[in-house]
Design a binder for these strands. Structure first.
Lengths: 137, 137
DNA sequence: TTGCGTGCAAAGGTTTTGCATGGCA
DNA sequence: TGCCATGCAAAACCTTTGCACGCAA
């Protein structure tokens, strides 16, 4: 999409494949490093962070920052899964810590409202709703 | 409100007064430490972090985490300003970084929807909407 | 060959923790 | 007096940066 990546490197392809394997799953940078280390083919953490950042810019992954003391997490939204993610809430339970996906069209209503009434262009993929999940209410 | 604070200490009162002076303003822990140091009556940073956490639990302050590499910020919402905050959006522009308050009843609709359709109890004071502000669209 | 990508190690910044001391009730 | 709060320093944590080397085009 975006011309940020000039080169197609082995690590980049491996990372994309890895995330593609878990669409809709939230994975953080530490998990990624740990996984490849345990596989016997480690990828440097600086590389992981730098590639993940690029992939977010390119729209392949999206990044969710949930709170300050837990790591940012990333999710595959590239290509085909892109449309689903566009109508997907992300809700974080502040008691059990679970991050929940919710497929729902209501999000479009909110988006439209924010834009029309408040001149704010919502980026749904980066927005996280805080609260309590059904198990923790 | 909440019985988390057993003692009424000097530092606690000073911190509450400080935040009360700036309702609707976002202040981070570093700023607080810096301010009191510059005033010649410093408060230990551990104390600041610990008291701020308690005040959030008690509903006196609310905490906004905007991204991983910038400090969390706090805002006075105790007592009288509490009701306003309950119908207040917080929107963060991911270009200019501005954090915007929006007073709006639409939030209640969203809250109701999340609860009725998704069994999720939204905590509006901790939720930040990401996107682009009118100057950055 | 050019210059971006990689990887190691170290730095960066925010927040938390350990522990002895101080202060409220 | 009993316990919680404070404060210093150090640790913990995630993420970024510096720099030399490697590799894609």
């Amino acid at each position: 999409m975006n011309p940020r990546s000039k080169y197609k490197t082995k690590q980049r392809e491996i990372l994309i494949d890895y995330f593609k394997t878990f669409p809709g799953v939230h994975i953080n940078a530490g998990d990624v490093c740990e996984y490849f280390r345990s596989q016997g083919s480690p990828i440097g953490q600086a590389t992981v962070y730098r590639q993940l950042e690029k992939l977010v810019d390119e729209g392949v992954l999206s990044k969710y920052v949930v709170d300050n003391n837990s790591p940012a997490c990333f999710e595959y939204v590239g290509a085909d899964s892109h449309e689903d993610a566009a109508t997907c809430f992300h809700c974080k339970c502040r008691k059990c810590g679970k991050l929940i996906h919710m497929q729902c069209d209501e999000l479009e209503t909110i988006e439209a409202h924010l834009f029309e009434e408040h001149r704010f262009k919502l980026d749904p993929m980066r927005t996280v709703f805080y609260g309590l999940c059904e198990n923790c209410i």
